[in-house]
Design a protein around this nucleic acid. Structure first.
Length: 574
RNA sequence: GUCCCAGUAGCUCAGCUGGAUAGAGCAACAGCCUUCUAAGCUGUGGGUCGCAGGUUCGAAUCCUGCCUGGGACGCCA
């Protein structure tokens, strides 16, 4: 769905926008359908330019009048109870909404719908499968996995808000030739005790060592290959070690997921597909898609202008593309998804293009519902991080530091707080998650611990703090929902009302673009608007107390819901 | 070499489905707590929107070329 698609907008998010489009199309006639007008309605960037605007430049050529003149004429004809005033300004028609009506309507809606405010129905009956997080066993949970995890989780939340069923799949990297290397390394230098007590760190250590030493001792590579063969042939020892590494790794990952508050509907390793890939290969053969090339089996993608997709290596073994194809087919059979989103780094975009094209060649009708939700990489000093070079930064340490810093802040700013640890966890973890989500997911981000541990400005703590202040007001003012009053009189409340009103639209746009950062940016503006209201208006003991508290209450509903969408908790006090 | 992504304030980034005076945060400077949590608010300074063309009434936004950085380009995932 795109902006202005009327089929979906039954719930009328922007009532006044529709009224304006309808009126204008009435005045202008058939030549300018209301959908077209709707699409060209803008939100002015300055408060003094009103709440809605329509630029008349596009009308000029066919009506043969200068836009200024058109704006003047049209402004005179536009009349509606929703509009307070209509003003022509240098080719634009600027519309000021009826504040009293809009405020009352918006607040009533939030009060009635509560946490359902912002939800949509257009995804009803449809299923979205998300592939997210996907850490590799025996490797640390890196900042890159954090991106996939929090972005995927937020998109899943947004999808649910739009009515979709979601299936979150954690596709664990538990297979591949690197495990042969790891097994070989373990046989050489592994220390059972140390691995028991600190599995990922120890396994990473020997894995890195393996890579270093293999530079001078190439025969190590051969040993690795041998161990992988053993693993493939279900060698008892290889299998036992592999399972041990896997279980120990998953246990450590669970700690992180618990901290992040992320859950999955299915956690499944790549190895699960080991005995299912031959069926995929057969299918490709049957369709005559498999071609021999340098001893390997590939699907050629020349018409697509892409390099061939490798299905079987020259030694006859399968490869990740085979696995991903098999997994996709399996997922469709299990869930009949309407969309399958792969939240995976940008570096794999060629791979996913190939997968999609191969599925298309198999004439699977759902091939196009596969979407690679790519994101930029975490860079360090301008280049990619690498486990092999031991350069990865551990998420767990970052989270711990963030929580610690939040605790220190609380001790200093609110020493009387009773549940300091909970608040510190919510604030610290929230800061880390938000730091990631506020950026456009496609851009690379330079890792900066400093930025992640900043609690001022455009951060989660800023949002949480606004929420906490609002909650505190409601408590001090003894706010009672039963006596909510949506009749605000003062002009100062208007910007906040407008922000709150926009929330459903933001949720929709955020999901349609698979872009949680849209929600993140909205929440920052919302909180800023609230903080401005907070400092410039006396709420408790001022005029209009009950109505202002009603506005504050509405704010708490929206910001809490928004944070929840991003996977961030809102503490009651901090 | 081919393909993909990015280049906006000192730094991190918005804005990029074309529109009015290019916006935030951080950093710097100047203010605001006897009053609702100062993790806040207010103000000041700071920009050839990588470069050059083109399309348009109008371009940071769309098109082309170039420069710079990053990534990907079969037997890793």
């Amino acid at each position: 769905m795109r902006r202005g698609d009327f089929l979906y907008l039954k719930e009328v998010i922007y009532m006044e926008k529709h009224v304006l489009a309808l009126q204008l199309s009435h005045i202008l006639g058939e030549k300018f359908p209301r959908e077209w007008i709707y699409d060209h309605i803008e939100t002015p960037k300055l408060e003094k330019m009103g709440d809605l605007a329509f630029p008349c430049f596009k009308l000029s050529p066919s009506l043969r009048k200068p836009p200024q003149e058109l704006a003047n004429e049209l402004a005179l004809q536009l009349k509606h109870d929703l509009f307070e005033s209509v003003q022509p300004v240098s080719g634009y028609i600027n519309i000021f909404l009826n504040k009293k009506f809009t405020t009352e309507h918006t607040l009533k809606q939030i009060l009635t719908e509560r946490e359902n405010f912002g939800k949509h129905q257009f995804g009803k009956g449809k299923t979205v499968v998300l592939d997210l997080s996907a850490p590799n066993i025996a490797k640390p949970f890196s900042m890159g996995h954090l991106r996939s995890t929090v972005i995927g989780n937020a998109i899943a939340n947004l999808a649910e808000h739009c009515g979709y069923e979601t299936i979150k799949i954690n596709y664990i990297g538990d297979y591949g030739t690197q495990f042969g290397k790891l097994l070989a390394a373990y046989k050489k230098w592994g220390d059972e005790q140390r691995i028991q007590s600190n599995p990922i760190a120890e396994l990473t250590k020997i894995y890195v060592r393996f890579h270093e030493e293999s530079k001078n001792h190439p025969q190590l590579i051969e040993e690795g290959r041998l161990w992988f063969k053993k693993l493939e042939h279900q060698d008892e020892e290889a299998l036992r070690l592999w399972k041990w590494f896997k279980d120990a790794s998953l246990e450590e990952f669970d700690k992180i997921y618990h901290l992040l508050g992320v859950t999955f509907d299915l956690t499944r390793g790549e190895a699960y597909y080991n005995d299912k890939m031959e069926a995929t290969v057969d299918l490709l053969k049957k369709r005559h898609l498999l071609k021999a090339s340098d001893g390997a089996q590939v699907v050629r993608l020349d018409e697509q202008g892409l390099p061939p997709c490798l299905i079987k290596k020259s030694d006859g073994t399968t490869i990740y593309a085979t696995r991903d194809l098999t997994a996709a087919i399996d997922r469709y059979q299990s869930y009949s998804f309407d969309e399958a989103l792969y939240v995976v780094g940008h570096e794999q975009s060629l791979h996913f293009q190939q997968i999609k094209h191969v599925l298309n060649k198999l004439e699977l009708p759902w091939a196009d519902s596969i979407k690679h939700i790519s994101f930029g990489m975490m860079l360090q000093n301008g280049s990619k991080m690498s486990t092999r070079r031991g350069k990865t930064i551990l998420l767990e340490q970052v989270l711990e530091e963030a929580i610690h810093k939040a605790k220190v802040n609380i001790e200093e700013k609110n020493p009387k707080l009773t549940n300091k640890n909970d608040a510190a966890r919510q604030v610290g973890v929230g800061a880390v998650i938000f730091h990631d989500l506020k950026h456009d997911r496609r851009n690379d981000v330079e890792f900066s611990l400093n930025d992640m541990l900043t609690f001022e400005g455009n951060t989660a703590p800023y949002l949480q703090y606004a929420y906490v202040r609002a909650r505190s007001l409601l408590q001090k003012g003894d706010f009672d929902e039963q006596h909510a009053d949506p009749h605000l009189e003062e002009e100062i409340t208007w910007p906040l009302v407008k922000q709150l009103k926009a929330f459903p639209h933001v949720v929709e746009q955020s999901y349609m673009n698979y872009d949680p950062s849209k929600t993140a940016k909205y929440l920052l503006e919302l909180a800023r608007t609230f903080n401005q209201f907070y400092t410039h208006s006396k709420i408790i003991g001022g005029s209009d107390q009950q109505a202002k508290l009603t506005l504050v209450f509405s704010f708490t509903i929206v910001i809490k819901e928004g944070l929840q969408l991003l996977g961030i908790e809102a503490p009651e006090e901090m």
